[in-house]
Design a protein around this nucleic acid. Structure first.
Lengths: 113, 113
DNA sequence: TTGTCATATTCCGATATCGGCATATGATTG
DNA sequence: CAATCATATGCCGATATCGGAATATGACAA
């Protein structure tokens, strides 16, 4: 088998740095593809493709505005990611100290050998 | 160019469902590879590979315990992800209502045509 | 040292990714 | 309708991924 599809999966969609940049940019408001490409220093087709992925996972919405198509943020899909990582909150404080303790114990044990 | 490396990037590391499962499992405590594989229904080499990636991005630590190697969680690397998504918190509430409003306006506009 | 259990690595095939370039499709205006 | 601007798609090459199977490496015990 091969790799998981980036489409239809928010975790994969935001694994791409450029796509994260796009999302951040869109926090400032809707923008047409060209402007996204320009502001982030990517090609128009490049931006278009990334926006397609973001649209497919539902992180972005489009609406036609005359000749243009305005892309806007729909951040609701990021919530599950936030919550998933939040499930580890207690572990990046308290619990890790224990692990650190283990490591120190090990170092000592090695020195005593 | 090709795809970004999953190694040395937490966002990519957690884009893999099985790796997320491993992290969740390890919240319950340290475990040897074999046990991880068994509890999650994957092969030993499979688990080993995923754990390698997680180790390389620093989400997991190993310590030798006799014949075994115990893998333990180091969730600190998840914090940036939590914070990054947290930067969109206001957008998955308030701000999206505006976008919804737009959509409704558009639907109306279309009906009036 | 040899055997045995635990884990890591290697090689492979199928596939999906991302970027670049050219081009097709779309919408609008004259 | 033709011209134009805006955007999307298609095709390509290079590469990395994931899973599977076999095998190598490691650690310990007898």
């Amino acid at each position: 088998m091969a790799r998981a599809a980036t489409t239809s999966d928010v975790f994969n969609a935001i694994a791409e740095p450029q796509r994260r940049q796009i999302l951040v940019l869109l926090r400032a408001g809707e923008r047409p593809v060209t402007e996204v490409a320009q502001e982030l220093g990517m090609t128009q087709p490049g931006a278009s493709k990334h926006l397609r992925v973001l649209r497919e996972v539902g992180l972005v919405r489009v609406r036609g505005a005359g000749k243009q198509r305005l892309y806007g943020l729909d951040a609701r899909g990021l919530r599950p990611v936030h919550e998933w990582t939040g499930g580890f909150e207690q572990f990046w404080n308290e619990s890790f100290d224990r692990l650190d303790a283990y490591v120190q114990e090990l170092k000592q044990a090695q020195q005593e050998e």
